[in-house]
Protein backbone atom coordinates (compact mmCIF):
# COMPACT_ATOMS: atom_id res chain seq x y z
CA UNK A 1 0.00 0.00 0.00
CA UNK A 2 1.20 3.47 -0.84
CA UNK A 3 1.24 6.92 0.74
CA UNK A 4 -0.70 9.81 -0.75
CA UNK A 5 0.66 13.35 -0.47
CA UNK A 6 -1.71 16.20 -1.31
CA UNK A 7 0.22 18.78 -3.32
CA UNK A 8 -0.11 22.48 -2.54
CA UNK A 9 -0.01 24.76 -5.58
CA UNK A 10 -1.64 27.77 -7.22
CA UNK A 11 -2.55 25.96 -10.47
CA UNK A 12 0.67 27.19 -12.06
CA UNK A 13 3.46 26.18 -9.72
CA UNK A 14 3.98 23.75 -6.90
CA UNK A 15 4.36 25.43 -3.48
CA UNK A 16 7.57 24.78 -1.59
CA UNK A 17 5.73 23.25 1.37
CA UNK A 18 4.92 20.24 -0.82
CA UNK A 19 8.60 19.34 -1.01
CA UNK A 20 9.05 19.32 2.78
CA UNK A 21 5.90 17.20 3.04
CA UNK A 22 7.29 14.69 0.55
CA UNK A 23 10.37 14.30 2.76
CA UNK A 24 8.20 13.67 5.82
CA UNK A 25 6.04 11.17 3.90
CA UNK A 26 9.11 9.31 2.64
CA UNK A 27 10.01 8.59 6.27
CA UNK A 28 6.63 6.87 6.80
CA UNK A 29 6.95 4.38 3.93
CA UNK A 30 8.26 3.94 0.44
CA UNK A 31 5.70 4.13 -2.36
CA UNK A 32 4.78 7.81 -2.70
CA UNK A 33 1.90 9.13 -4.79
CA UNK A 34 1.17 12.83 -5.21
CA UNK A 35 -2.33 14.22 -5.76
CA UNK A 36 -2.48 17.38 -7.84
CA UNK A 37 -6.05 18.65 -7.79
CA UNK A 38 -6.77 21.98 -9.42
CA UNK A 39 -7.97 23.70 -12.54
CA UNK A 40 -5.81 23.88 -15.67
CA UNK A 41 -2.94 22.61 -13.58
CA UNK A 42 -1.15 20.30 -16.02
CA UNK A 43 2.09 22.24 -15.46
CA UNK A 44 1.91 21.50 -11.73
CA UNK A 45 1.49 17.78 -12.43
CA UNK A 46 4.66 17.88 -14.52
CA UNK A 47 6.58 19.57 -11.71
CA UNK A 48 5.18 17.02 -9.26
CA UNK A 49 6.30 14.14 -11.46
CA UNK A 50 9.86 15.46 -11.35
CA UNK A 51 10.14 15.38 -7.54
CA UNK A 52 12.68 12.77 -6.48
CA UNK A 53 11.02 9.83 -4.73
CA UNK A 54 7.51 10.22 -6.14
CA UNK A 55 6.33 7.11 -8.04
CA UNK A 56 2.97 8.32 -9.34
CA UNK A 57 1.12 11.60 -9.80
CA UNK A 58 -2.68 11.67 -9.77
CA UNK A 59 -4.06 14.63 -11.66
CA UNK A 60 -7.62 15.81 -11.02
CA UNK A 61 -8.14 18.76 -13.31
CA UNK A 62 -11.58 20.38 -13.01
CA UNK A 63 -13.08 23.82 -12.23
CA UNK A 64 -14.36 22.73 -8.79
CA UNK A 65 -10.78 22.13 -7.62
CA UNK A 66 -9.43 25.54 -8.62
CA UNK A 67 -9.40 26.99 -5.09
CA UNK A 68 -8.79 23.83 -3.03
CA UNK A 69 -12.17 24.13 -1.33
CA UNK A 70 -12.28 21.53 1.43
CA UNK A 71 -15.81 20.34 0.57
CA UNK A 72 -15.15 19.22 -3.02
CA UNK A 73 -11.47 18.34 -2.62
CA UNK A 74 -12.29 16.42 0.57
CA UNK A 75 -14.77 14.20 -1.27
CA UNK A 76 -12.13 13.47 -3.89
CA UNK A 77 -9.46 12.49 -1.35
CA UNK A 78 -11.95 10.38 0.61
CA UNK A 79 -12.94 8.52 -2.57
CA UNK A 80 -9.40 7.18 -2.98
CA UNK A 81 -8.32 7.42 0.67
CA UNK A 82 -8.83 3.78 1.61
CA UNK A 83 -6.28 2.71 -1.00
CA UNK A 84 -3.55 4.32 1.10
CA UNK A 85 -1.85 3.77 4.46
CA UNK A 86 -1.16 7.49 4.91
CA UNK A 87 -2.77 10.69 3.66
CA UNK A 88 -0.31 13.52 4.13
CA UNK A 89 -0.58 17.27 3.48
CA UNK A 90 1.43 20.35 4.40
CA UNK A 91 0.14 22.16 7.51
CA UNK A 92 -0.66 25.27 5.47
CA UNK A 93 -4.05 26.95 5.74
CA UNK A 94 -5.21 24.71 2.88
CA UNK A 95 -3.92 21.52 4.48
CA UNK A 96 -5.35 22.48 7.88
CA UNK A 97 -8.71 23.22 6.28
CA UNK A 98 -8.86 20.03 4.23
CA UNK A 99 -7.39 17.14 6.19
CA UNK A 100 -9.62 16.98 9.31
CA UNK A 101 -12.61 16.88 6.98
CA UNK A 102 -11.06 13.91 5.17
CA UNK A 103 -10.16 12.17 8.45
CA UNK A 104 -13.67 12.48 9.89
CA UNK A 105 -15.25 11.17 6.70
CA UNK A 106 -12.96 8.13 6.92
CA UNK A 107 -13.66 7.82 10.68
CA UNK A 108 -9.99 8.11 11.57
CA UNK A 109 -7.98 10.55 13.67
CA UNK A 110 -5.58 13.16 12.38
CA UNK A 111 -2.13 13.98 13.66
CA UNK A 112 -1.58 17.71 13.11
CA UNK A 113 1.54 19.67 12.39
CA UNK A 114 4.19 16.98 12.87
CA UNK A 115 7.86 17.90 13.20
CA UNK A 116 9.25 14.36 13.32
CA UNK A 117 8.51 10.82 12.15
CA UNK A 118 9.47 8.12 14.68
CA UNK A 119 7.95 5.22 12.72
CA UNK A 120 5.14 4.59 10.25
CA UNK A 121 2.51 5.26 12.94
CA UNK A 122 4.31 7.41 15.51
CA UNK A 123 4.97 11.11 15.17
CA UNK A 124 6.35 14.04 17.15
CA UNK A 125 4.41 17.29 17.29
CA UNK A 126 4.50 20.49 19.32
CA UNK A 127 1.64 21.21 21.73
CA UNK A 128 0.94 24.22 23.99
CA UNK A 129 2.48 26.67 21.50
CA UNK A 130 5.65 24.61 21.43
CA UNK A 131 5.85 24.57 25.24
CA UNK A 132 5.96 20.77 25.03
CA UNK A 133 6.62 18.14 22.39
CA UNK A 134 4.25 15.17 22.24
CA UNK A 135 5.01 11.76 20.75
CA UNK A 136 1.74 10.40 19.41
CA UNK A 137 0.83 6.99 17.98
CA UNK A 138 -2.00 6.85 15.44
CA UNK A 139 -3.97 3.62 15.93
CA UNK A 140 -6.20 3.76 12.83
CA UNK A 141 -5.37 1.81 9.66
CA UNK A 142 -5.27 5.05 7.64
CA UNK A 143 -3.05 7.74 9.10
CA UNK A 144 -4.03 11.30 8.27
CA UNK A 145 -1.14 13.66 8.93
CA UNK A 146 -0.30 17.32 8.36
CA UNK A 147 3.35 18.34 8.24
CA UNK A 148 5.06 21.43 9.59
CA UNK A 149 7.39 22.48 6.77
CA UNK A 150 10.18 23.72 9.04
CA UNK A 151 10.49 20.24 10.59
CA UNK A 152 11.74 18.62 7.39
CA UNK A 153 14.18 19.43 4.57
CA UNK A 154 12.77 19.97 1.09
CA UNK A 155 12.87 16.96 -1.22
CA UNK A 156 14.83 17.53 -4.45
CA UNK A 157 12.47 19.14 -7.00
CA UNK A 158 14.11 17.25 -9.85
CA UNK A 159 15.45 13.79 -10.56
CA UNK A 160 12.15 11.93 -10.48
CA UNK A 161 10.11 10.75 -13.45
CA UNK A 162 6.75 9.61 -12.12
CA UNK A 163 3.88 8.65 -14.39
CA UNK A 164 0.92 11.06 -14.42
CA UNK A 165 -2.47 9.38 -14.18
CA UNK A 166 -5.75 11.21 -14.61
CA UNK A 167 -8.27 11.06 -11.79
CA UNK A 168 -11.93 11.57 -12.66
CA UNK A 169 -13.41 14.64 -10.94
CA UNK A 170 -16.44 14.11 -8.69
CA UNK A 171 -19.59 16.23 -8.85
CA UNK A 172 -19.51 19.23 -6.49
CA UNK A 173 -22.00 18.91 -3.63
CA UNK A 174 -22.72 22.64 -3.75
CA UNK A 175 -22.20 23.26 -0.02
CA UNK A 176 -19.74 26.08 -0.50
CA UNK A 177 -19.05 28.62 -3.22
CA UNK A 178 -15.83 30.51 -3.82
CA UNK A 179 -16.57 34.24 -4.08
CA UNK A 180 -13.16 35.83 -4.39
CA UNK A 181 -9.76 36.35 -2.89
CA UNK A 182 -7.23 39.09 -2.34
CA UNK A 183 -3.68 37.86 -2.29
CA UNK A 184 -0.87 40.17 -1.27
CA UNK A 185 1.47 40.85 -4.14
CA UNK A 186 5.05 41.04 -3.09
CA UNK A 187 8.43 40.63 -4.74
CA UNK A 188 9.88 39.46 -1.46
CA UNK A 189 10.36 35.75 -0.79
CA UNK A 190 7.54 33.84 0.88
CA UNK A 191 7.67 34.17 4.67
CA UNK A 192 7.74 30.46 5.47
CA UNK A 193 10.52 29.60 3.01
CA UNK A 194 12.67 32.75 3.17
CA UNK A 195 16.32 32.38 4.15
CA UNK A 196 16.18 35.62 6.13
CA UNK A 197 13.19 37.09 7.96
CA UNK A 198 13.00 40.60 9.42
CA UNK A 199 10.12 40.88 11.90
CA UNK A 200 8.71 43.88 13.67
CA UNK A 201 6.54 44.39 16.70
CA UNK A 202 4.60 47.07 18.48
CA UNK A 203 7.81 49.07 18.91
CA UNK A 204 7.65 50.09 15.26
CA UNK A 205 4.79 52.37 16.26
CA UNK A 206 3.07 52.72 12.89
CA UNK A 207 2.46 51.16 9.48
CA UNK A 208 4.70 53.83 7.91
CA UNK A 209 7.61 52.87 10.14
CA UNK A 210 7.43 49.29 8.88
CA UNK A 211 9.05 50.68 5.72
CA UNK A 212 12.32 50.69 7.72
CA UNK A 213 12.08 46.90 8.06
CA UNK A 214 11.04 46.47 4.45
CA UNK A 215 14.16 48.33 3.31
CA UNK A 216 16.32 46.15 5.54
CA UNK A 217 14.57 42.98 4.32
CA UNK A 218 15.06 44.01 0.70
CA UNK A 219 18.74 44.70 1.26
CA UNK A 220 19.12 41.20 2.73
CA UNK A 221 16.82 39.52 0.18
CA UNK A 222 14.56 38.48 3.05
CA UNK A 223 10.89 38.40 3.96
CA UNK A 224 9.04 40.66 6.39
CA UNK A 225 7.18 39.24 9.39
CA UNK A 226 5.39 40.71 12.39
CA UNK A 227 4.24 39.98 15.91
CA UNK A 228 0.56 39.70 16.74
CA UNK A 229 0.67 43.10 18.44
CA UNK A 230 1.89 44.73 15.23
CA UNK A 231 -0.79 42.99 13.17
CA UNK A 232 -3.55 43.83 15.65
CA UNK A 233 -2.43 47.46 15.63
CA UNK A 234 -2.92 47.44 11.86
CA UNK A 235 0.73 48.04 10.98
CA UNK A 236 0.85 45.13 8.51
CA UNK A 237 -1.41 42.52 6.90
CA UNK A 238 -2.66 39.52 8.88
CA UNK A 239 -0.76 36.95 6.89
CA UNK A 240 2.59 38.31 8.05
CA UNK A 241 1.96 37.23 11.63
CA UNK A 242 4.60 34.87 12.99
CA UNK A 243 3.60 32.75 15.96
CA UNK A 244 1.53 29.96 17.46
CA UNK A 245 -1.51 30.78 15.36
CA UNK A 246 0.25 32.51 12.50
CA UNK A 247 3.15 31.42 10.34
CA UNK A 248 5.83 29.07 11.65
CA UNK A 249 9.23 30.04 10.30
CA UNK A 250 12.74 28.69 10.74
CA UNK A 251 15.02 30.81 8.54
CA UNK A 252 18.80 30.90 8.74
CA UNK A 253 18.59 34.43 10.13
CA UNK A 254 15.67 35.93 12.04
CA UNK A 255 15.94 39.59 12.97
CA UNK A 256 13.38 40.61 15.60
CA UNK A 257 12.95 44.36 15.83
CA UNK A 258 10.95 46.18 18.47
CA UNK A 259 9.10 43.08 19.59
CA UNK A 260 9.14 41.75 23.12
CA UNK A 261 9.02 38.03 22.37
CA UNK A 262 5.78 36.71 23.86
CA UNK A 263 5.72 32.92 24.16
CA UNK A 264 3.15 32.76 21.34
CA UNK A 265 5.56 34.62 19.08
CA UNK A 266 8.56 32.52 20.10
CA UNK A 267 6.52 29.43 19.16
CA UNK A 268 6.63 30.61 15.57
CA UNK A 269 10.33 31.38 15.21
CA UNK A 270 12.46 29.77 17.90
CA UNK A 271 13.78 27.10 15.55
CA UNK A 272 15.49 29.77 13.44
CA UNK A 273 19.20 29.09 13.06
CA UNK A 274 20.42 32.52 14.16
CA UNK A 275 18.23 35.02 16.01
CA UNK A 276 19.05 38.71 16.30
CA UNK A 277 17.04 40.96 18.60
CA UNK A 278 17.04 44.74 18.45
CA UNK A 279 15.07 46.31 21.28
CA UNK A 280 15.54 49.27 23.57
CA UNK A 281 14.16 47.32 26.55
CA UNK A 282 17.02 45.13 27.73
CA UNK A 283 14.61 43.07 29.85
CA UNK A 284 12.56 41.99 26.80
CA UNK A 285 12.16 38.18 26.75
CA UNK A 286 13.28 38.07 23.12
CA UNK A 287 16.86 38.53 24.36
CA UNK A 288 16.63 35.16 26.16
CA UNK A 289 16.45 33.33 22.82
CA UNK A 290 18.55 35.70 20.73
CA UNK A 291 22.06 34.73 19.65
CA UNK A 292 22.92 38.40 19.23
CA UNK A 293 21.11 41.10 21.13
CA UNK A 294 21.46 44.80 20.52
CA UNK A 295 19.94 47.09 23.13
CA UNK A 296 19.27 50.18 21.06
CA UNK A 297 16.66 52.50 19.64
CA UNK A 298 15.42 50.70 16.55
CA UNK A 299 14.86 53.98 14.72
CA UNK A 300 18.61 54.57 14.84
CA UNK A 301 19.90 51.00 14.68
CA UNK A 302 17.80 49.69 11.78
CA UNK A 303 18.67 52.46 9.27
CA UNK A 304 22.32 52.21 10.31
CA UNK A 305 22.26 48.44 9.82
CA UNK A 306 20.58 48.79 6.44
CA UNK A 307 23.18 51.32 5.28
CA UNK A 308 26.22 49.42 6.46
CA UNK A 309 25.25 46.05 4.98
Amino acid sequence: MAILVIAEHDNQALKGATLNTVTAASQMGSDLHLLVAGNACQAVAEQAAAIAGVSKVLLADAPQYEHEMAESLGDLVVSIGSQYTHLVAPATTNGKNLMPRVAAQLDVAQVSDIIGVESADTFRRPIYAGGAIATVQALDTIKVVTVRGTGFDAAPASGGSAAVETLEALPDAGLATFIGQELAKSDRPELTSARIVVSGGRGLGSAENFALLEKLADKLGGAVGASRAAVDAGFVANDLQVGQTGKIVAPELYIAVGLSGAIQHLAGMKDSKVIVAINKDEEAPIFQVADYGLVADLFEAVPELEQKL
Binding site: L175, A176, T177, N238
Partner: peptide, 13 residues
Protein backbone atom coordinates in the same frame (compact mmCIF):
# COMPACT_ATOMS: atom_id res chain seq x y z
CA UNK B 1 -11.10 33.66 5.64
CA UNK B 2 -7.47 34.37 6.54
CA UNK B 3 -5.46 32.15 4.22
CA UNK B 4 -1.74 31.96 3.45
CA UNK B 5 -0.95 35.02 1.39
CA UNK B 6 -4.17 36.93 1.91
CA UNK B 7 -7.93 36.77 2.34
CA UNK B 8 -10.51 34.53 0.71
CA UNK B 9 -14.28 35.00 0.61
CA UNK B 10 -16.59 31.98 0.49
CA UNK B 11 -20.33 31.55 0.70
CA UNK B 12 -21.86 28.58 2.52
CA UNK B 13 -25.34 27.14 2.60
Amino acid sequence: REIDGGLQTVQLK
